[in-house]
Design a protein around this nucleic acid. Structure first.
Length: 229
DNA sequence: GCGACAG
DNA sequence: ATCTTGTCGC
């Protein structure tokens, strides 16, 4: 009997070591603090893949707290880096940065589809982008990457903490954004704290599992994808 | 050695 | 992420 083996070529240990070092370095630049002022504009960021080697990223900007859509932009290009758990940002961040540059309306904070510091080295894509853009960011993920948590109540608004299994430190919060649907994993990225990330996530809920910034970015990523291929 | 593993 | 049909529950 053959044992189970994950698909795809094995990761290059030399590359993994380099990327890991880069994350440790970037981690030193991450800051957690409350926002200087209440946001007027909040952005949503997400990426999709029209083809296996093409990435298309989207940024939507909404007024806050009305959540009225004021702008949406996208950019796409080739992707070289393969997907590796824990190193997602090296695959997606380059194109996301180019997309951000196209925005006419710069947001006060960015909600990213993915994790903030709820990452093995506290450098999820939200934190990674925050450092590169020097912008307040936080992550809203649909699946856990690392950590342990207690299942939050089944009603909308229930929250529990996501803890690092090793140190016990709080690395995020698990939020039930809608009655009886799988919870979201919210964590601060850069220039943002947990309280702010959680508060804004809840303030952006409109009856769907995903908060508006991320939900709309996801929606437009699908629409733009049709135009491109 | 055995699981877990964002998008 | 992406490929995909029908199906269960509110």
């Amino acid at each position: 009997m053959a044992y189970y083996r994950p698909p795809g070529p094995p990761p290059d240990p030399v590359l993994v070591k380099s990327l890991t070092q880069q994350q440790h370095d970037m981690r030193q630049r991450v800051r957690h603090e409350p926002l200087a002022h209440e946001p007027r504009l909040i952005a949503g960021c997400d990426s999709s893949f029209p083809t296996p080697d093409t990435i298309l990223s989207v940024f939507v900007v909404l007024k806050f707290p009305s959540l009225e859509l004021v702008e949406k932009v996208y950019n796409y290009g080739p992707v070289d880096m393969p997907y590796m758990p824990g190193f997602l940002s090296f695959r997606e961040a380059p194109n996301v940065i180019h997309t951000f540059a196209k925005l006419q309306n710069k947001p006060d904070i960015i909600m990213v589809d993915g994790h903030g510091i709820a990452h093995p080295r506290r450098m999820g894509i939200a934190a990674h982008l925050g450092v590169l853009l020097d912008m307040p960011t936080f992550g809203v993920a649909k699946q856990k990457l690392t950590g342990a948590f207690e299942e939050p109540g089944i009603t909308r608004g229930s929250i529990t903490e996501l803890l690092d299994t090793k140190s016990g430190e709080v690395i995020g919060e698990v939020i039930r954004s809608k009655d009886k649907v799988l919870p979201l994993f919210v964590s601060p990225g850069h220039r943002c704290d947990q309280a702010t990330a959680t508060r804004l996530t809840l303030a952006c809920l409109r009856g769907y599992k995903l908060p508006e910034p991320t939900r709309l970015a996801d929606h437009w990523a699908e629409e733009f994808k049709k135009e491109v291929r």
